[in-house]
Write a protein that binds this DNA or RNA. Structure first.
Length: 287
DNA sequence: TTGTGTTTTATTGCCTCC
DNA sequence: GGAGGCAATAAAACACAA
């Protein structure tokens, strides 16, 4: 069915003929329609420059470019379509890397705070033990002068409660406090508050991160980098230019942003963070 | 040389906007 | 309803290791 060039014409044409040659020989008009041909470096360069200026193609610009390049207007349109798709793919990879870095940093922060939590619990247990020994040696009634009864009861509860239950309480506290993270909280132990605070920080960081990655507006795709040299993206460069000039924005629509935020918010739960190796984080982040 | 993976060009079908 | 955009996909061209 598919006939090769050599079979069809007897001559194998080099792929990188110049635009002039293409024009002179009415190259594409004469070619077998089913054979794909790569564009010349000059053609690609001009197309890239045009894409940097504006990634969408008005009809006049399309015909003008096609005339300059010796291509069919349809080919120019297809090139722009594919170029937008490549740009979007790269942007997706950059967004993923940024979010992963943010998550890794927050997880490290969380781990440090969990260690602090554990250390402080040990201190509380040790001090309470000493207090109880002192009660025994000093006799009944002396403890009233050392600590109020309700404080001692609270401490004892904290010590006796299993770690998992304490963290559950921390998560619940976080849910309550997440709406007012910066207020000076009271009620509940400082240890638990620290954990809850972390959850709040995580959620706040995710909130701001997601907000920055998925900025508001009806059309992020066009607002961030897909438009003509917008300041957010810092301009669009060709892939050959290497690093992303079009970093810093996402093309995610709002519903996808919300989904990503929801996934992150799920990990404001310390249990989820601890179990993440087998949990949804690993699924989302590394699959 | 050949097998395989990647990139590029092009098509198709669906969707949205005017 | 037509034009144009996008996602998914096919297929040719290319790169490269064995």
């Amino acid at each position: 069915m598919m006939m090769g060039l050599e079979e069809g014409r007897g001559v194998k044409r080099p792929f990188f003929t110049s635009p002039d040659e293409l024009l002179e020989e009415e190259y594409y008009d004469e070619q077998l329609p089913e054979k794909k041909r790569r564009l010349t470096p000059e053609q690609v360069h001009l197309l890239e420059r045009s894409f940097e200026e504006e990634n969408k193609l008005e009809p006049e610009r399309k015909t003008e470019l096609a005339r300059k390049l010796g291509l069919q207007p349809r080919q120019v349109a297809v090139w722009f379509q594919n170029r937008r798709a490549r740009w979007k793919t790269k942007q997706l990879e950059r967004d993923f890397d940024r979010l992963k870095d943010s998550f890794d940093a927050l997880r490290a922060d969380h781990d440090v705070l969990l260690q602090d939590n554990h250390r402080l619990r040990s201190q509380v247990a040790s001090l309470t033990e000493k207090l109880q020994e002192k009660e025994v040696t000093d006799g009944a009634g002396a403890d009233a002068a050392v600590l109020p009864v309700d404080v001692k009861a609270s401490l004892a509860d904290d010590i006796e409660e299993p770690a998992a239950a304490a963290e559950e309480a921390a998560f619940e506290a976080q849910q309550v406090k997440s709406e007012d993270r910066l207020s000076t909280g009271s009620g509940g132990s400082a240890v638990v508050d620290a954990d809850a605070l972390l959850c709040g920080r995580f959620a706040a960081a995710v909130d701001s991160s997601v907000e920055s990655y998925f900025p508001g507006g009806e059309d992020h795709y066009h607002d961030c980098g897909m438009g003509p040299m917008n300041p957010c993206a810092g301009g669009i460069q060709s892939d050959d230019d290497g690093a992303g000039s079009d970093e810093g924005c996402s093309y995610y629509p709002e519903d996808e942003a919300a989904a990503a935020a929801a996934l992150f918010a799920g990990h404001a739960n310390p249990h989820a963070a601890e179990d993440e190796d087998a949990g949804q984080i690993s699924w989302w982040m590394w699959n």
